[in-house]
Nucleic acid binder design. Structure first.
Lengths: 226, 226
DNA sequence: AGCGTGAGGATTGTCAACAATTCTGCGACT
DNA sequence: AGTCGCAGAATTGTTGACAATCCTCACGCT
């Protein structure tokens, strides 16, 4: 796992992290109804902190709550997943542009290193979709942070990526085009290194657009059922 | 007020709404530290539901929380406010494009009516910045909803607008250029009516860009202090 | 005089019991 | 046979008390 165990400062944080990863990894499937007491015994905490965590997750759109009726994990339809990619297109395009203007040379060097290690992973462990997906996440994560746009990074990292990852684990989205994606990533990094924000935005938008069309195609072919 | 009193289903919802409006209207100023017990007596509720509401608001970025140390209303710096407008530019551009593709004829008619009533307001109550700001909010609200992109609307209405409105109340952002803004709004609506998504996106981006530069100028002039 | 230290107070985090609402299953009626 | 209504049960929402942590202020030390 990329992120080392985040030790939570408080029980509510712990509940929040547990639930979030449970949802993202698919331990709690989309549409699944979950009772509060069940969750408490499962994660060893009481209902107070749990309810606070549920509030946060609801606000982030990872689960839906109906008063007195219970909590369900959100289930995203195929069209909604595609709409999510439309949003990513414009937001990550902006992130790439601002990253090109603001990333430090060191960050760019790290970004290149990241891509090199991704390449090795793809060669060595061909078909290991899991690492590919995580690597892809890592790349986009770095650019979002590099934009130096606090709110933009917050929205991408806190809202969108979790929803997308929730399906990546199941579908391994970028599978089938790892080499293509890597090449696209490389071109984006070069644009950033040349401090060409406009080009970086264009390439990033095209990259995500391609990913969206790839999913769209698979859905039409019936390979992906959501 | 545009939105009639939202009757809350639960105490936590009530707390959430109370706090949100208190922050947006400025009853709770940016950076202000607030104690839980004080809020309880102020809004007549107990700490359980309140803490749930605090969790939601924290997750939305309207307030920051340090464990065991208390809650503060978020304070957005000038540069962060301008960054917010960069995000709005791309997201509302997308919303306008999708609205042009998907709004019903009736919704477009309503949108035109809205603009007409705004025009009357501007003529009659010249300088009433409050109505202008609310009218502007109303316009953008309708387009976000009209995009039929659930997550996009959720992010715009739930995240960005509240942060922007928080400063509108204080600064009456669009003041000084009401007629200009109205003209820009009209052109956007016409593009939507012609189902020209590309043009609608372009015009919306330019509209928000102009608003951003307007704020930028005022900050440079020292008229706006944040 | 300035700085580190410690006790006290205040505030936040957590818990377990109570109240209110909704869901479920059974029975009667159409 | 299907549908409406009702009562019980289960689940959620709320409350107030208890425990843990942090901030403040005074005191002593360097």
């Amino acid at each position: 796992m990329v992120q080392a165990a985040i030790q939570s400062q408080t029980r509510a944080d712990e509940a929040f992290n547990c639930l979030q990863t449970a949802i993202v990894t698919g331990d709690l499937g989309p549409g699944e109804k979950i009772g509060e007491v069940e969750l408490c015994s499962r994660f060893n905490l009481t209902r107070g902190p749990l309810r606070e965590a549920l509030g946060r997750l609801e606000s982030r759109g990872l689960l839906v709550r109906r008063p007195h009726a219970g909590v369900k994990v959100v289930s995203v339809s195929a069209t909604e997943l595609l709409e999510l990619y439309r949003i990513r297109e414009v937001m990550e395009g902006l992130a790439a542009r601002q990253a090109a203007e603001r990333m430090t040379d060191e960050e760019i060097r790290d970004l290149r290193d990241t891509l090199n290690s991704h390449e090795k992973m793809i060669e060595e462990a061909q078909g290991q979709a899991y690492y590919q997906a995580e690597g892809d996440y890592d790349f986009h994560h770095r650019i979002a942070t590099g934009s130096r746009n606090t709110k933009l990074a917050q929205m991408l990292l806190g809202d969108l990526y979790y929803m997308v990852r929730m399906y990546r684990y199941r579908l391994s989205t970028s599978a089938g085009r790892p080499h293509l994606a890597l090449g696209e990533h490389r071109r984006i990094v070069e644009a950033i290194a040349h401090r060409d924000g406009e080009l970086a935005e264009f390439l990033m938008k095209r990259h995500i657009n391609a990913a969206r069309r790839n999913i769209e195609k698979k859905i039409e072919e019936g390979v992906l059922t959501i």
